[in-house]
Design a protein around this nucleic acid. Sequence first.
DNA 1: GATACCATGTAAGTCGTTACATGATTAT
DNA 2: ATAATCATGTAACGACTTACATGGTATC
Lengths: 191, 191
Amino acid sequence: MPTSLGYAILALVASKPQSGYDIARQMKSPLGYFWQAKHSQIYPELARMQKSGLVAFTEVEQKTRPARKVYSVTDAGKTALAEWIADPPQERPANDEIVVKAYSLARISPARSAALVREQIRAHDERLGLLEQRAAAIEDRRQARGTKTGSRFGDYAALRHAIGVEREYLAWCRWLISEINRVEGKSRTKR
Amino acid sequence: MPTSLGYAILALVASKPQSGYDIARQMKSPLGYFWQAKHSQIYPELARMQKSGLVAFTEVEQKTRPARKVYSVTDAGKTALAEWIADPPQERPANDEIVVKAYSLARISPARSAALVREQIRAHDERLGLLEQRAAAIEDRRQARGTKTGSRFGDYAALRHAIGVEREYLAWCRWLISEINRVEGKSRTKR
DNA sequence: GATACCATGTAAGTCGTTACATGATTAT
DNA sequence: ATAATCATGTAACGACTTACATGGTATC
């Protein structure tokens, strides 16, 4: 039985045959909105799934580049994936460092806490912009091709989730900034 | 140097001296909205931090219960925590199984996918309700005591984040349901 | 000349989970 | 009786990260 990462790989390979490198590119942080993993985890997982018959590869030689192992899903892989999808997902703890930092934010000065949060806003605003660009591109394609539920529905759904997460995070960061300002204003007028 | 979990523990112990068991209770899934961890990870981490002088404990004997080790933060611990808060947080990949399942949702029937998503809505609606109750309680307390930025600001901030995450997740789930219905409706009228 | 991309892997180490271990008390 | 709560720990295993390893091609 594959791990969660294994199923994530299966899902990608099922949508389109591709190499470990291709998968790694899509799972690359910080832009990977589907599942994040490094190549050092992906290659062994692919090898394991190939041995257990869920995927198969054909080696494609190239002139100037090293050979690619292009993986595709076997029938057994498709069955395993469909069965796994239906049963309830494992809940993953958020365990986000920023929440711990926010919890103890009063331990550093308002100036420093504002700087911390503003940097988060900057970075996540940037990421959100990229995600929204991608979403807009997909929405155009969907309108053009009519409302046929293409194989890209899943990709779009994952994107929507990532965008929602970023928007929520940014709203929370902005609330934090307003709270920091409120406290700073209070302590200033007191003197 | 402590791990992220170590700092999460430091933050909790800094807000109020407490035992490993108390910490484990707050970090328990599925309600732990601050940081999730099991006691098997917390006890060794506390022991390590005690050895490196960031926390100290006093053993409190009890009549009917086993003795408690009540930990508190040392000055070195407070310094370490404040320094850690200021530097940029590590970004954690979401790696949520449900996103992978959504990606391949078209591989199972609309009935089964709707069941999967509806169960998520049920569970997370319940969790959201509990979080909102807690938030309401804190908001009352804050209004009563005036707007003094109590030590509970951090707790409230963590809660707001958790609530935001749940709301976003539920909105996404409901969008998924509407998409599933749209597709099902289309295929029905076709026949 | 340096950096980034293509393309694949392995090794060592850390973080986290599940299970093992103990034992009294309280609630259903 | 059975389960849940209080209270602390250790051991084995699995997941994930960082670094090691190789080597050609394209871009600045």
